[in-house]
Design a protein around this nucleic acid. Structure first.
Lengths: 247, 247
DNA sequence: TTTACAGAGGGTACTGAGTGCCATATCGTC
DNA sequence: GACGATATGGCACTCAGTACCCTCTGTAAA
């Protein structure tokens, strides 16, 4: 575990990565905590153990991390802020594209520190308390995406419902790709795995899919297509895309 | 809060609802806890308060509930078991239909005790700890659905990915409908709200949608349709459905 | 009837997370 | 040097959750 894993934050939307002349206590604590968690396990490590290794007072830990779990995910707050900022600017993007790109910000945070991310993934898988904590983090991302989509879709056509379902789909697809990469030990191509997973969501829900497809079909607006009886709808969609040369 | 709210469990798949001659301690505890949570708040109520009102020893509380939060959701374990049992039998249903019906089991648990469900909803909304706990419960439902879909879809065509995205969509749609009903104070039609929400998911992901549609179009397999440039894919799907007389 | 046993509940003491309060640096500023 | 602000340490407390052991009660075998 290189100590810079706790210092450098990559999605680089805000003012991160000042060289940090005195190794801020937050990072010292996060590193000490994570090393101990790897050595003896999360539940077997007390906050007293952490502050002892970090050489600081116990009270200081809770000044920087509201709970022991927070020390395992020291970067999500910033990433969430970046996502919010990104979406605030994303007014001209197609909505599903926008939230897909927003999800990619999270992926980039993980893939920037593969070793750390993989170790954390294995740790989180083992500890129920960390799994629950991670759920609450993921939920905040999902609500951020849903809030954005609600704003874009407005009240029309079950906008709120559509926003929530799409947000859930994007998060599920993103996490599927991310976990595939994490299970590989950080060896494969994380971007490709997530792009592939998000592609399925974009094809089903995105308006860019049909839009650019129609544009790329020089003949105009008429689509003629043959569908087999009993074909599932997602396959029909795939078929439309292949007919009109999408993807 | 009628005391039967803690006794009668409705989705009735297993051996529930024995009259319970001596008011089992688990229900006594759940009711005492819930009343206290409503009176003075969740965090302001200690386990000692609960066992004092229930007139039992402190140790007994943790024999029936692994944590304080569990006392707020005393019925989910059983509902989860019912869902698992239901899906184990659902081999002939179309997969998306099956998980939609499975989700309706959860809804039925809520709508069986409207007053209790609405009070719990308001309580959960206020208490971060309960929100997090609820997330972990919802996640278990979602994983149950995803596991079933994985089994149905197999390894082909990104089966695992599709399973997770659909499970997430179904859960999101279900929760949207459920929350709509809960926010209404339990006045509206819960089934209708959830059916409507699940309909959107079924139309997009279900194979029954395209299947029965193609079947109902007497002309055969050829679908001719006109799509406007830049139309969103979900609207294209809607259009296909209306063209071939679906829904 | 006595004994053995099992299962439900009660009691006590302990660990450890998280909080509130106050004391103590440390640092820049006037 | 005085002063206020911010960062940190120390202490005491509450409370959730657990380990261990006790009592009681009902039941079945001897």
């Amino acid at each position: 575990m290189p100590e810079w894993a706790f210092r450098c934050y990559v999605p680089g939307m805000t003012d991160a990565r000042r060289p940090a002349k005195k190794a801020p206590m937050r990072e010292v604590l996060a590193e000490a905590a994570f090393q101990l968690f790897l050595e003896r396990g999360f539940e077997q490590t007390t906050v007293d153990d952490i502050v002892a290794r970090a050489g600081v007072g116990r009270r200081s830990f809770f000044r920087y991390f509201p709970s022991k779990e927070d020390a395992v995910f020291p970067d999500h707050e910033r990433c969430l802020a970046d996502m919010t900022a990104f979406l605030a600017e994303a007014v001209d993007l197609e909505p599903v594209e926008a939230v897909s790109d927003a999800a990619r910000l999270v992926l980039r945070m993980y893939s920037a520190n593969p070793v750390f991310s993989v170790q954390r993934y294995r740790l989180t898988r083992e500890v129920p308390g960390l799994r629950t904590y991670e759920l609450s983090v993921v939920r905040r991302y999902e609500q951020t995406l849903a809030g954005y989509l609600r704003g874009r879709y407005g009240e029309s056509d079950d906008g709120a419902l559509r926003a929530e379902v799409i947000a859930a789909s994007v998060v599920a697809a993103h996490n599927n790709g991310l976990r595939t990469w994490l299970r590989s030990g950080g060896e494969g191509d994380a971007e490709a795995a997530v792009d592939h997973a998000l592609g399925m969501v974009r094809r089903v829900w995105g308006s860019g899919a049909a839009g650019s497809a129609a544009t790329s079909s020089a003949d105009g607006d008429v689509v003629v297509m043959v569908a087999a009886k009993g074909a599932p709808m997602w396959r029909v969609v795939q078929q439309i895309e292949s007919v009109i040369g999408q993807d």
